[in-house]
Design a protein around this nucleic acid. Sequence first.
DNA 1: TATTGTTATACTCTATAACTATA
DNA 2: TATAGTTATAGAGTATAACAATA
Lengths: 143, 143
Amino acid sequence: MARLKLDTFLPYRLSVASNAVSNRIAESYRKRFGLKVAEWRLIAILAEHDRLTPQALGGMTRMDKIAVSRAAAALQERGLIETDRNPGDGRSHFLSLTADGVGLYGEIAPLALSLESRLLTSAERSQLAALLRKIETAADRLS
Amino acid sequence: MARLKLDTFLPYRLSVASNAVSNRIAESYRKRFGLKVAEWRLIAILAEHDRLTPQALGGMTRMDKIAVSRAAAALQERGLIETDRNPGDGRSHFLSLTADGVGLYGEIAPLALSLESRLLTSAERSQLAALLRKIETAADRLS
DNA sequence: TATTGTTATACTCTATAACTATA
DNA sequence: TATAGTTATAGAGTATAACAATA
């Protein structure tokens, strides 16, 4: 009979490692900045892109439109992002960081990078990134 | 200012890859066998260990006692596992696979292994396993 | 008629706490 | 008094569907 040892089963190991990291990060963002992970993702992307529609944000964060909408509402409530009219499409709008949002990003980013560097060396991270990308595309084609 | 590109941020990539794999697996187990991932984990461990207490199962699957209790109840309801008295401690009991449970494991294990092999080659899986273990221990010590 | 985004609803997963029975 | 396991309850994350406004 085919034997499967859970302890060395890739999907299991991946899930355990991802949860361990996610839980640490989520706790850290929540306690120090009052942010959920979804909210932090929007901030990180907006810090790179100036202004974006919710749809574009969803594509870049792998979040669906509902999660984007709720995270954006929470951030706007706190004055971390603001909306502008989208002249090209009245159904949509642009989101961008406020000065406060930029400031918060400036606080979080170095901490996040430091945390990342404590998990693996730079060379190991490159190696891992390549493996994870291969897994993602393979998983998308699984069935 | 420190820049952080979300797309190459390790915790983000790890989460995306893990979710992609987990969602595929969860869907597959649910549709084909009516099992949740937690239930499948108990079956996989019990197939390796003959009989175990809920506490031992929790340690081996990284699930807490609540999740173990609920998954075990669902499996017992379906006749896939059974309980025996634990003569050494009346508060506890032993769980083991029934003949049906062994049979189901025999069906799932080859499919799971085949799925795993379609994600990465054997050499890549070894490489990934080493990186993930390093991440897990580092994450546990993060703060 | 289709699309962008919001809201309502529900389901899963997880975590805390209260409970039972045994030690 | 502490521990093994169960049950109740609530939170976060995610998915479906219905809806409003615009294309």
